[in-house]
């Protein structure tokens, strides 16, 4: 799943470690989400959305996966 987490984070001037601390996850979790290696659960995605004050679908984009599923 693609996402704009890295863009949002850098806009705020936060490091991965700082964002990880705010979400109470490991720094590796943030890196894995940003690089698309790991898709967060709904509770974590909601927490990210709340933190940046944006709707989930604005941060996470599952269009690529939906296209694959439709094929």
């Amino acid at each position: 799943m693609k996402n704009i987490l890295k863009i949002l984070r850098t806009e705020k001037g936060w490091s991965q470690a700082a964002l990880a601390e705010k979400l109470d996850v490991s720094r590796q979790s943030i890196n894995a989400i940003e690089t698309g290696k790991y898709d967060p659960s709904l509770p974590l995605a909601f927490a990210v959305a709340r933190l940046f004050g944006r709707p989930i679908e604005e941060i996470f984009d599952d269009e690529v996966e939906l296209a694959h599923a439709a094929e």
Binding site: D24, V25, S26, Q28, S29, A32, I33, Y38, P40, S41, L44
Partner: peptide, 8 residues
Amino acid sequence: TDEYTRMR
């Protein structure tokens, strides 16, 4: 722990 660490 958090979900990603748990998975690892």
